[in-house]
Simulated assay, not measured.
Amino acid sequence: MLTTTTSNPMQLETVLEHIFAIRRITRHDQHLLMSTLLSKEDLNEEERLQISRVFDALRRGLIKVVD
C-alpha cells in the first residue's frame, strides 16, 4: 500500500526554516524536504529560490549534513 504526503506551502516553508535555524540538515529533514517536494506537481519561483538557497548553503559549508 502506498501512502502519499499531501503538501502545502507552509509545510515546505517550515522544513526550510528549521534547516536554516539550526544550520544542519539531518536524514529526517532531508526525508521531509524530499517528500514535500516530490508530492508537488510544480514548484513556484519562490520555492525554487528557497531550494537553491539550501543547496548554496550546503555547498558553501553554511549548513552541515548530520545523521
Rank of each mutant, 00 (worst) to 15 (best):
T5E: 04
T26N: 01
E17N: 15
L33N: 04
L62D: 13
R59P: 08
T14G: 02
S35N: 10
P9K: 15
P9N: 15
M1T: 08
F20M: 11
K64D: 10
D29S: 07
T26H: 05
H18N: 14
I51G: 04
Q11S: 11
Q50L: 10
L16W: 00
S39H: 03
L33I: 03
L33K: 04
T5I: 01
E45R: 00
I51H: 00
S7M: 02
L16G: 02
G61S: 12
L38Y: 09
E46K: 02
S35L: 10
S52I: 00
M1I: 09
E47T: 08
H28F: 15
I25T: 12
L2H: 08
L38I: 05
L38M: 07
V65D: 05
K40E: 07
V54S: 00
Q30R: 13
D42H: 14
K64N: 06
R27V: 06
S7I: 10
R27C: 04
L2I: 07
R59I: 13
H31Y: 13
T36M: 04
E17D: 14
S52L: 01
I51R: 00
Q11P: 09
L2C: 00
H18V: 07
Q50A: 10
Q30M: 09
V66T: 12
D29I: 06
T4Q: 07
R48W: 02
A21Y: 01
V54A: 00
L2V: 06
S52D: 03
E17Q: 14
S7F: 06
L58T: 12
T6E: 13
I22Q: 08
L37D: 10
L37S: 06
T14A: 03
T6H: 07
A21W: 09
R24C: 12
D29Y: 01
I25K: 05
E47Y: 04
T14I: 03
L12A: 05
L32I: 12
T5W: 01
T26R: 04
S39E: 10
F20H: 07
M10N: 07
V65S: 13
E47P: 10
S7L: 02
L49M: 09
N44P: 05
E47V: 07
V65Y: 14
R48D: 04
P9W: 15
T4M: 11
I51F: 00
R23L: 05
N44C: 08
V66W: 11
R24M: 14
Q30T: 08
K40S: 08
R53S: 02
R53T: 12
F20A: 01
N44G: 10
E45S: 01
D42N: 13
L12K: 01
I22Y: 02
I63M: 13
A57V: 02
V54Q: 00
A57F: 00
Q50R: 14
L37C: 12
H28G: 15
M10K: 12
L43F: 03
S35A: 03
I25S: 13
I63S: 14
V54C: 00
G61K: 09
E45V: 10
M10S: 11
I19N: 04
L33V: 07
A57I: 00
F55E: 08
L62V: 04
D67R: 12
S39F: 03
D67K: 01
R48V: 05
T4S: 05
T3S: 11
F55L: 05
M34P: 04
N8R: 14
L37Y: 12
